[in-house]
Nucleic acid binder design. Structure first.
Lengths: 154, 154
DNA sequence: GTTTCATGTAACTTTTATAGTTACATGATT
DNA sequence: AATCATGTAACTATAAAAGTTACATGAAAC
């Protein structure tokens, strides 16, 4: 599967922007993410379109949060990226076949619910939470409790 | 995102195999799925390795279920395919950064739980359930099937 | 035993999605 | 005006999935 790094890039950038007093340039952000400034502009451009970020040209320009980090949830970012991250393909065989139709129903329902689970996880964490993980001690902060831990069979 | 059609191919094939009295060839299955016989062998080969299917060479050879369709769950098939269907990429940025570490924790937990939801959906449906969807209404009753003249009563 | 049928698999090609890059326009600050 | 930074289109590169070719293996039919 061809992986998709847009969410990771977006969250990492937002986390650093939350900690920065001044705007950050695409070039600085690209360096932190080991990628290219144009890629940064493409991804952050979606967040700007969603009202999460603002950008300025010229001297002292760059990117900054459009509202406080505590008021930007990871789910907001996930929605702003607006890409399907689940790669289960629905069949190309003719849906007149009852098997195909039944499969479509099943897979669609499962994917919808899986997306809902992702969303509910992401809705509980804000960019401020991610940024705090860096200021705290420089390492991973546990996720906010949302579900009972340890009951995932996968 | 690069879509992945292996699960759809596998489920559709198994559904028809559940209804067939005789083995089906890769060529016949490929025609039903509008794909190539070698692709069918690649995908069904994984199901054989997982003990869900058996294959025979030569005349009257082909594929058949290794056990009754009611005893093969969609989750069994999903597990046999054994591919990651969630394309959220964990960051390539150095994990010494606390933001990256926190993000990894969050995304991993969310993906794990999303996978669990898929699994629980798929565990509730068997291949027999899918096949029933065809016999119930759906499509042409067990008349002469499309793939071979004469002796293949599906 | 040879022909035919079908799977098994490696190797290659094609397709497509993501990421990376180049080039240039636009606007803001100095 | 010069510089800095974003905005975007167009192109290239990489990687994953599917499609295809080629050939080996084994089983049944003749």
């Amino acid at each position: 599967m061809k992986h998709n790094g847009k969410l990771a890039l977006a969250l990492h950038s937002l986390g650093h922007l939350a900690l920065s007093q001044t705007p950050m340039t695409s070039e600085a952000i690209a360096a932190q993410n080991q990628t290219h400034p144009v890629v940064v502009r493409r991804v952050l451009g979606r967040l700007r379109a969603a009202g999460l970020l603002q950008s300025e040209k010229g001297h002292a320009g760059g990117w900054r949060l459009a509202r406080p980090a505590a008021q930007i949830s990871v789910a907001d970012v996930y929605a702003a990226i607006d890409e399907p991250f689940l790669s289960l393909q629905l069949p190309k065989a003719p849906p007149e076949c009852g098997i195909v139709a039944a499969m479509q129903t099943l897979v669609s329902a499962a994917m919808t619910e899986a997306e809902a689970v992702l969303h509910s996880h992401f809705a509980r964490q804000s960019i401020a939470d991610l940024a705090q993980a860096m200021q705290g001690h420089g390492h991973a902060a546990p996720e906010k409790p949302a579900f009972l831990p340890g009951d995932s069979p996968l």
